[in-house]
Amino acid sequence: MPRSRFLTVLALVLSLLAPRMAAALGKAELVDLLKSVDERQRNQGDWRDLVYIEQKEKDKVDVAYEALVFRRSQDQKFIILFTKPKASQGQGYLRIDKNLWFYDPSVGKWERRTERERIGGTNSRRSDFDESRLAEEYEPEDLGQEKLGAYTAQVVKLTGKPEIDLAFPVIKLWVDKETKNVLKRQEFALSGRLLRTSYYPRWKKVYSESKKTDVWYPEEMRFYDEVEKANSTLILVKSVDMRPLEPNLFTKAWLESKSR
């Protein structure tokens, strides 16, 4: 009977597809995955580190910065303060609530910026230096698994939640199945245009007193510009320190005081 044969074939096809479908993650599992990605990196306290940023651009001399990053988990405050080179010394960004401020001590002026601000003119954003808050900011969608060199990665598509100012509205994320470390990201514009490909090849852990367990952070981040193909950015994180910071650190007054 043709009809029953059709059903047999259908069943066969479905059974072939079954392993894939069985592996597909449900919404809740994906959110859990994001939460665990965030959780591994979360510190639940104060944090500071020293970062080096390098920007390579076509036909231009390299730009390099040394900067201090300060952040506080509980109210999501953030500062990046440039310390080198001399000409940029004392310039910085301050994030309070949903505001991102840029400060230039040479003119004593605060400027309101957006999350799309290229930090110091490089292809890095504020969120690259800050705590991971993917579960809070994005809706995940399963894209299956993929091999990435020696790793097996779970690939997730992230779409930004409405009304949140985000540097990138759409992200494709490769998470190591074993460790839940992020290995690779591709960041897209709302139009679907690929803007940046990022790699996180080296993860380090430090023991946090406030969290009572290890905190993981990417020691190296490489961003390849997908619009200006010749451009790339490198961030190196050094010397993480989790001792409590001054309570009034995340204020305009404090940053101003550092260049007075």
Binding site: L68, L81, G149, P201, K204, V206, Y217, R260
Partner: peptide, 28 residues
């Protein structure tokens, strides 16, 4: 970057705070 798996080492105790103090002092 992904040729061989990185098992994740423990980072040395950070002294960014001290470095930061020094840097901030130089800014002041």
């Amino acid at each position: 970057l992904f040729g061989k798996p990185d098992l994740g080492e423990t980072a040395p105790i950070g002294r960014a705070g001290d470095e930061a103090e020094a840097v901030l002092r130089s800014l002041a």
